[in-house]
């Protein structure tokens, strides 16, 4: 009987042997010697060859655009003019001395953290509730994920219409409930514009969290809960000592992913408020868009996007650090 290990060893040992000389080929002992070690090395590690196309593709579709963007950030490239020149750090200097850039960072952090926290909380509650449902879980899950399935432009305009100060249903309901005395321009007032778009984003994003967390919940063995109940644990104790530890990795991955997506989100904010009023909702992507696609100032926009990448790397690094500490604990 031949085991897999035997076969693999045979393949390896066969490839270690020198290749037989081609019939009729003149002997050239010195000319082919230099690359023989490489070929032998590749013979032993064919998997490297298999990985090369993937790596090349990755470099082409990720590294090239990123590199091109970084290159642009050092030029005065403008789409309205045919030539561009190397300007060194001038774009970065201009961006870093623009107060609007730092305000945009602050707003982006507020937008990202409050949105992700709200989505996580609502998604978690939804997942716990849905797990307890014994009948019709499928249709319920489908119904709750509907917001995720709509195009953002449809959602943005629907919310804009619902929040309209004159014909919007939100004002009507709040006035009937006695929560407000007169219609509020939710998207047109400095103090309410950001909370309004965050609320909209939480509504949009929580189903994704909910479905992912529900899947995570279903991987926690039921026996853990049964043992805990035998020991007299209540709901909150189960939540703290079984559910949350069991979901730790899912939550970590979700928070990192959603943070990146929300941080880079452009369409919701732009379609509902255009970054206004008075820049109250101007996040970094909107700020970059205004520079690059309304003024065609690609060089400066590239500098902003490199700075965005820096901020995002810091956020993700902090998350990963926290998760690693949590894992070590």
């Amino acid at each position: 009987m031949t085991s897999r290990l035997d076969s693999a060893e045979r393949i390896d040992s066969r490839s270690e042997e020198p290749a037989p000389a081609l019939a009729g080929a003149p002997p050239s002992p010195g000319s082919r010697r230099w690359y023989r070690p490489i070929l032998r090395w590749l013979d032993r590690r064919t998997h490297v060859l298999l990985v090369i196309p993937g790596v090349a593709l990755l470099l082409g579709i990720v590294a090239y655009p990123v590199g091109f963007n970084v290159w642009n950030s050092f030029t005065d490239r403008n789409l309205s003019f045919p030539t561009s020149a190397w300007v060194g750090l001038a774009n970065y200097e201009r961006v870093l001395t623009d107060a609007a850039f730092f305000s945009a960072i602050t707003r982006t952090l507020v937008w990202t953290f409050t949105s992700v926290a709200g989505q996580l909380l609502l998604g978690f509650i939804g997942a716990i509730a849905l797990q307890a449902v014994r009948r019709g879980q499928g249709p319920l899950r489908l119904g709750l994920i509907i917001p995720w399935a709509f195009p953002s432009i449809v959602l943005a305009y629907s919310w804009k219409f619902m929040l309209d100060p004159i014909v919007g249903v939100v004002n009507d309901v709040f006035m009937r409930l006695g929560l407000i005395d007169q219609p509020v321009a939710w998207l047109g007032t400095e103090s309410t514009a950001m909370p309004a778009v965050v609320a909209m984003n939480i509504w949009f994003g929580f189903p994704f969290m909910m479905v992912a967390l529900l899947a995570g919940l279903q991987t926690i063995p039921v026996e853990h809960y049964e043992s805990a109940r035998v020991d007299g644990a209540n709901f909150w104790q189960e939540l703290r000592h079984i559910t949350l530890p069991g979901l730790r990795h899912v939550i970590g991955a979700l928070v990192v992913l959603r943070s990146i997506w929300v941080f880079n989100n452009f369409d919701f904010v732009y379609l509902t408020t255009g970054g206004g009023p008075i820049r109250a909702t101007e996040t970094l992507p909107v700020y970059a868009f205004q520079i690059g696609w309304t003024n065609y100032d690609i060089g400066r926009m590239a500098a902003v996007s490199v700075a965005m990448l820096g901020v995002l790397v810091v956020i993700v690094a902090v998350y990963l650090k926290v998760l690693r500490v949590d894992k070590e604990d």
Binding site: P165, I166, P183, A185, G188, T189, T273, G276
Partner: peptide
């Protein structure tokens, strides 16, 4: 003019 004037286009 009214509320929402900074959002209308």
């Amino acid at each position: 003019s009214g509320p929402g004037q900074v959002n209308y286009n």
